[in-house]
Nucleic acid binder design. Structure first.
Lengths: 208, 208
DNA sequence: AATTATAGAGAACGAGCGGTCACCTGTCAA
DNA sequence: TTGACAGGTGACCGCTCGTTCTCTATAATT
């Protein structure tokens, strides 16, 4: 236990800040849960605020590496059922991955106090998912799996309800199973409404 | 300026708590913006926490009175265009009414720290709107304005994206106009997808 | 072997926190 | 006229906050 103390501090900071907020967390508590005494923290960070800024740097970098670049786009599903499966897989990850959950909670809490948190929150909660699904839906339309429509609108229509249920899981984790079931039900509803059935395909064209 | 001091304290508390959070707000600042000195506050509340609890009481009561009771349900629109109009009217109110905005921000910030805030947040952000629109959509199906489908699912599909855009306005108020335009575009998309056109009506039945 | 950098510990700092208290003043009922 | 009371004030309290200081043990560098 030596060199990685800085990272361990950031991990605990994410944990506590995401539960009690920046103002609601004190460094005695933070260092204590690392088995340190508060003054030791200042060997690694020069202030509480620097911890916050480093945490945000890390979250921004992580988001960029994980979701921000086009090469990390998931493949276009080959079937409507494939869309449902992919959705459930992504939802399962994002709801259960502790780091991602804590990041969302932290952004939720601090979005009105910090400009960078505000911007990252909009990416996490709105534009990120939409921008990810827009090319996917465009591809599915090209494959004749979805009715021709504005892919960006469909992506918004698809991701916003899922995002709302993810928020519900963050807020009330005991409802996770219920929420996952709702996500699947919603996904199937979407597929029913916007998907092109084999019958429609055979009768030619997918523009009504 | 005498008897209403208690209410003025609560108003300022809502203002400051919704911006800086409960932990990030101190009573000197709170009382100063009322032209009082901090000790005066304790003539009206016995602690900072009691302010918080009173504020929550008020928010819960307000929500129950304004949105919670069935008699406050908006009327079932007579046309698809009526649904769009009603939606825009409600969105305009909820985005611009200061009290409602601050209430949402406060619940957003404090939902992970307080049980009652958590429960009220779920109502505000998820179930409230859905429960309001479920009977409306059921009524519109009865009138032959909407395709027959699960009204609760449609209500969820309709309100979640709108709710996401309302959150965007809370977070980045400078995007309000853009968000309102997106709400209208989404509402018209919804009507296009789920609405029953006159042609469909004439050819009898609305079950595909 | 001597030196130096590192990462802790522990005591202490001043500032700010929520909260208390004695006191003052205007209002109004008895 | 008086006295109780509601509402506001300023001094003060103990505590906790973020931060700094000095000191020490360890381990790498010279």
């Amino acid at each position: 236990m030596a060199k990685d103390t800085k990272e361990r501090i950031l991990a605990v900071a994410l944990d506590l800040f995401s539960q009690n907020g920046y103002a609601g967390t004190n460094i005695r508590e933070l260092t204590a849960s690392l088995g340190l005494v508060k003054s030791s923290l200042y060997k690694h960070f020069e202030s509480k605020e620097e911890i916050w800024n480093s945490l945000l740097d890390e979250m921004i970098a992580y988001y960029g590496a994980r979701f921000g670049s086009p090469e990390h786009l998931p493949p276009v599903p080959d079937s409507l059922e494939g869309l449902v499966a992919m959705t459930m897989q992504m939802a399962d990850f994002t709801i259960h991955d502790e780091r991602v959950v804590k990041t969302r909670k932290l952004l939720t809490i601090e979005q009105f106090r910090d400009e960078r948190a505000r911007a990252l929150a909009t990416k996490h909660f709105l534009t990120g998912l939409k921008d990810m699904f827009t090319p996917i839906f465009a591809g599915m339309m090209d494959k004749g799996l979805l009715r021709r429509d504005d892919p960006a609108m469909l992506a918004f229509v698809y991701t916003a309800p899922i995002s709302a249920l993810i928020h519900l899981c963050d807020r009330e984790p005991e409802k996770t199973n219920e929420a996952m079931a709702q996500i699947e039900a919603f996904s199937r509803h979407f597929v029913k409404v916007y998907g092109v059935t084999d019958d429609q395909k055979k009768s030619g064209g997918n523009r009504p």
